[in-house]
Design a binder for these strands. Structure first.
Ligand SMILES: [Mn+2]
Ligand SMILES: [Mn+2]
Ligand SMILES: [Mn+2]
Ligand SMILES: [Mn+2]
Lengths: 224, 224
DNA sequence: TCATAAATTTAGCCGCACCTAAATATTCAT
DNA sequence: ATGAATATTTAGGTGCGGCTAAATTTATGA
């Protein structure tokens, strides 16, 4: 259906997926920022992506881009590989959860369908990666995910952590130290009045951790 | 010492290593043939490689190329990764020995030093890959290898297989079917007078296999 | 509303790694 | 030893994916 796409194009499509997943379209500057390249380069590339056969994105000048179905299939395939790799590195090769994102960012482009299948099987067809992000299945269907975030909680309420943001290793080490990881039972102890900084208790470790509002919005959980 | 080198350059250096490993210099046309590209492209690239700082190859017009020390270090690092990957895929992910070369050809360029270390450790610091090729150690030193080939044997002589050629999956499936793999005890039953085709007995499986002279020269063994 | 600021696109450029065709150097066979 | 065959290099060109600077469009706010 779609011919072999470059490394770079795969990252563009994945990034467009991530941005449009929470909100309408992806803007030129959002993509430039996320990919670490100039806005002009992004414009150039999205014009190309909108003119492939079939088109991978829909694009109107100055209005940002969205993935077409074809583009979304590509993005989901790469995301699937990324998350399977992260899971495998943690489970089978003793990586810690803050090391795997960077590694997967490269390996995702070098993974054959055969390796994808073998790793998936070796892991027992997992539904979530080490950060709690859902892994699309063989047919690229995403498991359902919760939308409640830590920032939605009121003081005194409790929940079970579903996922944490995965990009910044320092954040992951900070969270990991106190035991705040997917599966952990937590309780929101207090929230400061002005800047909404939160004090969170992790039940299993009996540790407390301070979470700012930006980070808090990226931690999702099931309310208990 | 040497800045980050592209995939393509890594493959050039690896290929120059393979060619010069058995014989003097690598010619433009040998490289073009091995890499599946035009001779003109090869000339262009080796000129570039001879002008890096430090130079990766030594080159005189019309005389072919050799690796410098710097170039050899790069080649050995990629070969190490290639062979570790092959070993890992066979041992940990259930690959057969005819599937791994193609896979490793890609993954070798996507492997971080960290992943290299983890896989090396997980395998117990192996000295040979599934085809019997030596794996350079962390300091890029090659284990010693035998130079005797099946073609050197006289009819009636016996030996233990050390390595087989790894590039062609069909050859590997052919050899594997009869049990001719590294470690196997074999005996050269007969050699046809004109074209030197060999009939070889594999002791463990009690199977016979026919090996032509070109393939025979690429199978190395320890004489018993 | 309308001037300025911000975002986006266009224009023109670069290095990489490939290509074909033509020129030149080397090797081989008579 | 020399002309033909073969190998290699040069010349000129392509697509990819970046870049900066300039032009243009859209958004903002006084
Ligand atoms: Mn990537
Ligand atoms: Mn993740
Ligand atoms: Mn390769
Ligand atoms: Mn091998």
């Amino acid at each position: 259906m779609v011919k072999k796409l470059s490394h770079n194009i795969q990252d563009y499509l994945k990034q467009i997926y991530e941005i449009t997943n929470t909100g309408g379209k992806a803007s030129t500057s959002q993509l430039a920022e996320a990919l670490g390249i100039s806005a002009a380069s992004v414009t150039n590339m999205i014009q190309k992506l909108s003119m492939t056969q079939p088109p991978l994105v829909t694009y109107t000048k100055h209005q940002g881009v969205e993935l077409t179905n074809a583009g979304q299939q590509v993005a989901l395939k790469i995301i699937r590989r990324h998350r399977l790799i992260e899971h495998y590195l943690v489970k089978e090769l003793g990586y810690s959860w803050d090391e795997v994102h960077e590694e997967a960012e490269i390996l995702e482009h070098a993974m054959s369908p055969r390796l994808e299948k073998r790793i998936d099987a070796a892991l027992g067809y997992p539904e979530f990666d080490p950060h709690g992000d859902p892994i699309p299945d063989q047919n690229l269907r995403m498991p359902e995910v919760t939308k409640t975030s830590l920032s939605d909680l009121k003081a005194g309420e409790a929940g079970r952590v579903i996922r944490v943001p995965h990009n910044d290793p320092r954040v992951l080490r900070y969270l990991g130290k106190s035991g705040l990881r997917p599966g952990a039972s937590i309780k929101l102890l207090a929230r400061t009045p002005y800047d909404q900084t939160m004090r969170v208790l992790i039940r299993d470790t009996d540790e407390e951790v301070i979470i700012g509002p930006v980070l808090g919005a990226q931690i999702t959980l099931a309310v208990e």
